[in-house]
């Protein structure tokens, strides 16, 4: 009951508000074109009829929520997953490169963090470059990465995954630097009194202390990976994936398809973030964290 009052109710209220605004927006955005159509057809529908028509255009400027919902449902559940029109298929293509890029990015981020924490030279020299790397617009980098790799014969999932890596290593590196430096002074002093070696202090103190930071930054990183994968599909003429779906939708003004693909992307993102969060809770529980 508390749960219903505390989380479901407020979330549903906001959702209802968004849907209402969306419907109003759909009517307003689609009205000019609908008026055009009606004038050319020589028709003059009543207000209810007119509103109904603005919400059921095949290629609306702003599709109505129910159009997106039915398109999403149809292309997710009613098509074989191998079909080129199935959103499950496209989501899977994007998901595969998201996960690969996320794995690369996490590994790279952790490696950079370990280097920065242990070598003052790296701390001074690398950090500014890492921060600078994130100020470069990914949309500018993505086509170059794809083209450069294609020129040396590497195409497909790897270049796409590298764009995800580029976006996802950053939060992991920053989070892990913080995490590896999180042990209290007393804990470090304690290890010093035992005459512990640096590897011992690293494995027995710094690594376990950094676990909560790792999962917090992995949540951000996996969402960034997904963005990277979608962006990687846009300029490459990819034939499959959520990015390709968005692009072809915009070529052919299939706005409903585009919105459905966006919804698919959001669902994938929500699932991924939830999964990482759940994995984090599981690991922390097994490390004796007080249950929340």
């Amino acid at each position: 009951m508390d749960r219903a009052r505390d989380s479901i109710l407020p979330v549903s209220a906001i959702l209802a508000g968004v849907v209402a605004v969306w419907y109003v927006g759909a009517v307003l955005f689609n009205a000019p074109f609908q008026r055009d159509l009606d004038r050319r057809a020589g028709e003059s529908p009543g207000i209810a009829e007119f509103v109904g028509r603005t919400l059921s255009q095949p290629k609306p400027t702003l599709p109505a929520p129910h159009q997106v919902a039915s398109n999403f449902f149809e292309n997710t559940f009613l098509r074989p997953v191998t079909s080129n029109r199935s959103l499950v298929y496209h989501s899977w293509v994007t998901l595969a490169s998201t996960l690969l890029g996320f794995a690369f990015g996490t590994a790279l981020g952790v490696a950079i963090a370990v280097g920065i924490v242990h070598l003052t030279t790296l701390d001074r020299s690398l950090m500014p470059w890492i921060i600078a790397s994130q100020t470069i617009p990914i949309l500018a980098i993505a086509p170059m990465v794809i083209v450069v790799f294609a020129s040396i014969g590497i195409t497909g999932i790897i270049p796409k995954a590298l764009i995800s890596t580029y976006l996802s290593f950053f939060p992991v590196a920053v989070g892990m630097v913080k995490g590896l430096r999180s042990p209290e002074l007393t804990h470090l002093d304690l290890m010093h009194t035992y005459n512990a070696s640096r590897p011992q202090t690293f494995w027995k103190l710094r690594v376990p202390a950094s676990v909560p930071f790792l999962f917090a930054s992995m949540k951000v990183a996996i969402a960034a990976s997904l963005v990277g994968a979608i962006v990687g599909e846009l300029p490459t003429g990819a034939v499959a994936g959520i990015g390709a779906k968005l692009l072809s939708g915009s070529y052919y003004s299939q706005t409903i398809d585009m919105w459905a693909a966006l919804v698919a992307g959001s669902v994938v993102a929500a699932l991924l973030v939830t999964l990482v969060g759940a994995a984090g809770r599981l690991v922390e529980r097994s490390m004796g964290a007080r249950p929340a």
């Binding site: 007393t186 002093d189 304690l190 103190l205 376990p208 202390a209 676990v211 964290a289």
Partner: peptide, 11 residues
């Protein structure tokens, strides 16, 4: 050495 805080590793 025993510190002022117990300084046990929580994990």
């Amino acid at each position: 050495y025993v510190f002022q805080a117990a300084a046990l590793f929580p994990w």
